[in-house]
Amino acid sequence: MGRIVLEKVTKKFGEVEVIPPLDLTIEDGEFAVFVGPSGCGKSTLLRLIAGLEEVTSGEVKIDDATVTEVPPSKRGLAMVFQSYALYPHMTVRKNIAFPLRMEKMPQSEIDAKVDMAAKSLNLTDYLDRKPGQLSGGQRQRVAIGRAIVRQPEAFLFDEPLSNLDAALRVGMRLEISELHQRLETTMIYVTHDQVEAMTMADKIVVLQAGVIEQVGSPLELYERPQNRFVAGFIGSPKMNLIEGEAAKKRGAQTMGMRPEHIAVSTEAGEFKGTVGVAEHLGSDTFLHVHIDGIEEHVTVRQRGNVNFKYGDTVYLTPEEANVHKFGADGLRID
């Protein structure tokens, strides 16, 4: 079981309030991702759950038991750090066995568990090496191994992939997702990368300045962002957010349209613009279009290869049903 509840949790560093009162529930077995720009308090929130930081007020509950005063190791949680935080002076085997040794588990049991974890993570050949002799991806797996042998109530991941190169990151992303499917244990995952959030999460928690902007499934967030911030943050390429005449006409302060929800024509349309850059990815083409009176360029996604080049005049028309409208307060208007 691993149901984690935060009740009116706040955190102050000195006089600075990094987390204003915050409530959040993460259901047992859920894969929850905390996402937001750097400095939004997502890591702090994770550390509050882990017990590495003390809450200033409020309560942290795991399976209905209040753990606010419980030391980190007694909360039944395992954490994977951004830097992996392996013990550099111990072999892989000793690293993975360490939490079990601390629990004073009999050696034979420890060996069995370590071997099993190593097998499932493809680390069997590396058990007698030290972390310094491993590649980034292998270190990452050792860190995960150290976490899973404890059979925790929940796993906490603090930006675990940000030190890996792009190719490895995709692979590890899949491995962690698969691990979650297999173990069915609660996982809380912190990242600043919305692609990771979208691809891995059951539930995404978008944070900004310590405040939860929206909680929901990836598709909910994508299709119905509650406010301007979430709209601009979730999705790649970004949603085009336009202010002024066009938005006013629709009764909003800001209108948002995703790149794939814009029709392109060479003859007529709502906005007239010129192509700045056309990025050909093969499967898609991204057009970056400059429109008079709109400061930022508008990104348009076209399927396949479309033959536009720098300087071409194009007309853009949004799909009305998929236009997002936001009021002056930044909140969604339906």
Binding site: A50, G51, L52, P71, P72, S73, K74, L77, A78, M79, F81, Q82, S83, Y84, A85, L86, Y87, P88, F98, P99, M102, E103, R146, R150
Partner: peptide, 13 residues
């Protein structure tokens, strides 16, 4: 790295 000390705390030190 402070992470290593914290990992130790998580592991029960």
């Amino acid at each position: 790295p402070k992470d290593i000390i914290e990992a130790g705390q998580m592991d029960g030190l």
